[in-house]
C-alpha cells in the first residue's frame, strides 16, 4: 500500500491569541474640561489605544502563520460602550475572530491592579497561548497592565517588544525588547506567555471598507465584572491606588513667547529673534 505522504506542515499548531485593546479618548487638538478628577470624555471620540493596534497586528500575523483564533478583550464603564464597540469592530474588520467587552461602571474607577485581576480572571477562562497588549496606554500611560496580568495568570511576560520571531512552531518566541538608547535585549520565552508591544514593531494594516461594514453585524459578547469571574473581595483587595485630585498642570513652568500673525510674519519674527541671539549665521 502506498501512502501519500505530505510533508508535515508547521501550520498545524493552532494558536489562541488574546489581545487587550483599550478604548482611549482622542484628546488631540481638543480643549479639555475636567469632571470628577478625570477629563470629561462626554464629547470626545474614542480610538483604539495606538500601542494596542500594534498588538492586534502582531496577533493577526501569528494567526496567519499558524492558524487559530484572535480574541479581542476591552473593558470600561457604560459611558464608554459606544467607543469600546467601535474599537472591537475595528479589530473585527482587520481580522479578529471574537470580541469580549467588559462593560461595568465599577471597572472605570478601579486601580490598574484590580483591573488586571479582572482581565486575568477572564483570560484564565479563555486559556490563550499568547496574550498581547500595548506596553502603555495613551491616556494613563502607567505601563502596568501587561506584566500585572501575566503575574496574576502565572505566566511569564516580556515587555516593550520590537520584534517577535516564533520558534518551535509557535511554542516559543525569540523577542527583542526595547531598552534605553536604542539598545535591544534579545530573549526567549515559551508559551503560554504575555507580550507587550512597543511602537514600531510593525505597521498595522488598514481594514477594507467591506470588512468594516461586515464588522458592524458581528456579535460582541458583553460581560459584567461578575461574569468576568473576578470575585468581589478580590477586586477590593487590589483596588489600592487612589486619585486625590487632578487638573491642568501649573503653567508656571512655561514662559514660551508665542509669535503671532500669518506664517510669513511669524517666520520673519523668528528669524529676527534667532539672529539677535546669534543663532543663525548671516
Amino acid at each position: 500500500m502506498v501512502i501519500n505522504r505530505t510533508p508535515v506542515s508547521c501550520h498545524g499548531d493552532l494558536v489562541k491569541i488574546a489581545v487587550l485593546a483599550k478604548a482611549v479618548p482622542d484628546v488631540k487638538n481638543v480643549r479639555l474640561t475636567m469632571k470628577e478628577n478625570d477629563i470629561d470624555t462626554a464629547d470626545l471620540n474614542f480610538l483604539i489605544n495606538e500601542q494596542d493596534s500594534y498588538s492586534l497586528e502582531e496577533a493577526l500575523r501569528l494567526k496567519e502563520k499558524f492558524g487559530g483564533e484572535v480574541i479581542v478583550i476591552t473593558a470600561g464603564g457604560e459611558a464608554r460602550r459606544k467607543g469600546m464597540t467601535q474599537v472591537v469592530r475595528e479589530c473585527y474588520a482587520k481580522g479578529a475572530d471574537r470580541g469580549i467587552m467588559i462593560v461595568d461602571e465599577a471597572f472605570q474607577k478601579l486601580d490598574d491592579l484590580a483591573r488586571a485581576r479582572v482581565f486575568s480572571s477572564l483570560l484564565t477562562q479563555e486559556k490563550p497561548d499568547v496574550v498581547i497588549c500595548g506596553s502603555q496606554s495613551f491616556d494613563t500611560a502607567t505601563s502596568r497592565m501587561g506584566p500585572m496580568v501575566a503575574e496574576f495568570m502565572g505566566i511569564p511576560h516580556a515587555s516593550l517588544i520590537t520584534s517577535l520571531e516564533p520558534l518551535e512552531g509557535g511554542k516559543a518566541f525569540r523577542v527583542s525588547r526595547d531598552l534605553e538608547q536604542g539598545v535591544q535585549e534579545i530573549l526567549q520565552i515559551g508559551t503560554p506567555c504575555l507580550l507587550t508591544t512597543q511602537t514600531g514593531i510593525n505597521t498595522p494594516r488598514y481594514a477594507a471598507l467591506s470588512k468594516i461594514i461586515m464588522a458592524t453585524r458581528k456579535e460582541i459578547r458583553t460581560v459584567s465584572l461578575q461574569d468576568a469571574g473576578a470575585a468581589q473581595g478580590d477586586i477590593g483587595k487590589f483596588d489600592l491606588v487612589k486619585v486625590v485630585s487632578a487638573g491642568f498642570p501649573a503653567e508656571k513652568a512655561s514662559n514660551v513667547l508665542i509669535l503671532k500673525g500669518t506664517p510669513e510674519e511669524e517666520a520673519a519674527q523668528l528669524v529676527r529673534s534667532l539672529r539677535e541671539k546669534g543663532l543663525l549665521q548671516r
Partner: peptide
C-alpha cells in the same frame, strides 16, 4: 516597566509608575 507591575500583583502591594 517590566519588573515592578508584576511584583505588585505578586505581593498585593499598591504600585504606581512614572
Amino acid at each position: 516597566m517590566d519588573f515592578f507591575p508584576g511584583l505588585a500583583a505578586s505581593t498585593g502591594m499598591a504600585m504606581l509608575s512614572d
